[in-house]
Simulated scan of single mutants.
Amino acid sequence: MIRPRGVVTTLTFAVVLVFSFLTAPAAHAEPPQGAYITGIEPVNDRWDKVSVFSPSMNKVIVNDVFKAPRSGAPTFYLLPGIDGGDDIAGGGIAPGGKAWFGMTDIQGFFANKNVNVVSPLGGQFSWWTDWIADPSKQYQTYMTRELPPLINAEYNTNGENAVGGLSSTGGTAVDYAVQAPGLFQAVASYSGFLTPSDNAQQVGLTLLGGGASADAMWGPGGGPLWVAHDPSKNVAKLKGTAVYVAASGSGNAGAVDRLPPGFGDNFTGGFIERIVADSTRVFADNAAAAGVPVTYIVRPDGSHTWGLFESEMQESWNLTVGPALGV
């Protein structure tokens, strides 16, 4: 059983993030052909590492898969953060280890739940969206059109899906339901950034921390593509999808963070958490005004750590995702 290891702020650059991309001048007009599984490496009897060739990006993506105990189960996708699952801060975590399967107890929590849990790795500073000026970053296409059919066939799923994201990919997970209607029965944002078009400068600063330009993602900040991928601007398109969004209102470090003794107050994480909390509130207010029901949780404590993300994920499963998937 993998136990949580360490507590590291997911974002050590500027501010926050989110999101994913839909239709644009450079978008694919037809469904991509040729995605296939290049290999499956069993870690144990329930955990596989599945390598998939993405034709839209012309590269192989490794995906952690925790198999359901019985066939005919739904699938819960969990996106990585801005670091793509790697320890870019140099904390000594092995490549691919700063991710859901390395930092949280996926195997323990889902052991008796009939659901496949799939978490892709990689995609540093990509927002896990499609970029209009970078063919190597077409992650929305991968997550909405290439990967799910392969997982469905390989693991004999029932075709029902949910997706969650943390921090940089919290808004991305919600955006997937906007961009690919009907694919996901539930979406969840764990301390995510849900208002990118109104805060393009913050997104740009975070991308700049990885040497990337936000203009290459969705064009000039605040432009049409930014609005098209802004969950807070597209709440009406979420009707019929179960939605969970959460963040800590205070940003204060607390027991949920599982900080090691002597770690301190985690000022950077707290600063980021307060920003995403405000963004999450705006999204929830817009959803309420549009008459779109969402599960909106304001945590009393939490400073943008894996402890907080894991707690939010488990809560989202119990309150929103599991019921939507019928598990």
Rank of each mutant, 00 (worst) to 15 (best):
A27Q: 05
T129F: 02
A177H: 07
D198V: 02
I61L: 03
Y139W: 12
G270H: 04
Y77C: 00
G159W: 08
S168C: 12
D198T: 10
N266K: 07
Y296H: 13
T144H: 01
G170R: 03
R274H: 08
S191F: 06
S279T: 09
A188L: 12
V203L: 08
W47G: 03
V52I: 15
G192W: 02
V256N: 08
T129D: 07
D215T: 11
S189V: 08
G254I: 06
E146D: 12
D230N: 15
E315F: 04
V43K: 15
F193A: 06
F267T: 14
S311C: 00
W306H: 10
D87Y: 00
A177D: 09
G302R: 02
G307H: 00
V282L: 12
G122A: 03
Q202V: 12
V292M: 03
N152I: 04
A111R: 15
P220D: 08
R5I: 13
W218C: 06
S189Y: 01
G269H: 09
D64V: 02
A284V: 07
W226G: 02
A111M: 11
Q201R: 13
I93S: 00
I272D: 01
T280V: 06
V294E: 06
K98I: 05
N199L: 12
V227T: 12
V15Q: 15
G251N: 09
F19P: 00
G165C: 07
G262V: 12
D278N: 14
N234P: 04
F101R: 02
A94I: 08
P31E: 14
F283D: 09
L11I: 14
W127A: 07
L308T: 05
M313H: 09
I151F: 00
S119W: 02
F267A: 14
A68P: 01
I272A: 05
P135G: 08
V18C: 14
Q33G: 11
R274P: 04
A186H: 02
E41N: 15
E312K: 05
Y36L: 11
I82Y: 10
P31W: 11
I88H: 07
G171P: 01
S303G: 11
P149G: 01
S51I: 10
L238I: 07
Q202F: 13
M313F: 13
F53Y: 15
E273C: 01
N152V: 07
L17R: 06
S119D: 07
F184H: 04
M143G: 00
P55C: 09
Q201K: 11
N152Y: 03
V174T: 04
E154V: 05
T75K: 01
P300S: 12
G219I: 08
A228D: 13
E310D: 08
N252S: 13
S189D: 05
I2H: 11
P260N: 09
L205F: 12
A247M: 10
N112P: 01
T157A: 14
V117F: 01
V227L: 07
V8A: 05
A228S: 14
P69F: 11
V50T: 15
P74S: 10
N158A: 13
N44V: 06
N266I: 00
F21V: 13
E154Y: 14
A89S: 10
F101I: 06
K137R: 15
G159A: 06
L147M: 15
A288C: 03
F76T: 04
V50M: 15
L147G: 04
I275S: 09
G221E: 00
K67A: 06
F101L: 11
F109C: 05
S71M: 11
Q185H: 13
Y36Q: 13
L78W: 08
